[in-house]
Design a protein around this nucleic acid. Structure first.
Lengths: 154, 154
DNA sequence: ATTAATGCAAAATCTTTGCACTTTC
DNA sequence: GAAAGTGCAAAGATTTTGCATTAAT
């Protein structure tokens, strides 16, 4: 992930997507893609930009996040009404979501198998299958992690 | 299962959940539970209540939807950032979601099998596994999604 | 009577928009 | 110097909150 020339990498991602590499976009792309997979909200990214002395308005943050999403570099993850997360991991994968804290983490696509998917209604096609594993604090001790992985469904 | 005595059923659901059967709550419960499985937004339910000559404020709609959700009679479905759907089907099942139209439909739990679920992080337990099958219009064919199952949303 | 629920309007969030100004090509 | 991008503040949309009024036990 963290390549040798982060600046150049961010720049390349942008130009390859047909987005002009402006100061703001390059800066945001670096924040997003130079440190492995992450999940950010617009507000969070804005705060990071400020901390990094990158002057960007929230409006531009939103614009950029959507442009990157349209370009396939980000994926919007909807787990919480009224808050959008953007995920820098655009490969096939799913999510753990801890409702109380808002904690969100990737689960590699290979770790979940969804079988017997029903056919989509006529005239439509499946664009994506999202699996969200919702979590809460375990009651008693730490980890109510029942030995094996569970099976949901039949 | 539109039962023989819808009014009584709505009333029972409420009292069994420890909620006072006020005029508003009984009316809303009837709208929600007397016609099979449905997916509604607060705004929609409000409109229906008005059309049914049931005077309720939006604030009460939200209060009631959340109370019914806490009581386990409804399930909140998050598929779209910034819009909450409430599902009267609280049994194990998943969803089809047509992004362009906001159309949402149930997929029986038995029709999808999720296997090899990873262990939840220590100290947490899985509260639910949501599977959302996102749809878009198929390229070739004519028909758009909404056969008739009911279009939810705008 | 007591306690809970309702309604209204105001506030809080999060996100988008309009338009003048700035930067990139 | 065109065209694209940015910033700001204002507008939207959805959901929550505070408090006086009303209704249920």
């Amino acid at each position: 992930m963290t390549s040798i020339r982060p600046f150049k990498r961010a720049l390349d991602l942008l130009t390859r997507s047909g987005l002009r590499p402006t100061r703001q976009r390059v800066g945001l792309a670096r924040l997003l893609f130079d440190s492995g997979d992450r999940h950010v909200t617009a507000e969070q990214l804005h705060a990071e930009a400020m901390a990094d002395d990158l002057k960007v308005s929230l409006a531009t943050i939103y614009n950029t996040l959507h442009q990157l999403t349209d370009a396939g570099l980000l994926r919007e993850v909807v787990v919480d009404a009224g808050r959008s997360y953007f995920d820098t991991n655009s490969t096939l994968h799913h999510h753990f979501f801890h409702e109380a804290s808002g904690w969100l983490a990737d689960v590699p696509g290979s770790q979940i198998v969804v079988e017997a998917l029903p056919q989509p209604p006529a005239g439509t096609r499946v664009t994506r299958v999202d699996v969200i594993i919702r979590l809460a604090d375990a009651p008693g001790e730490a980890g109510t992690a029942e030995g094996e992985g569970g099976v949901v469904g039949r």
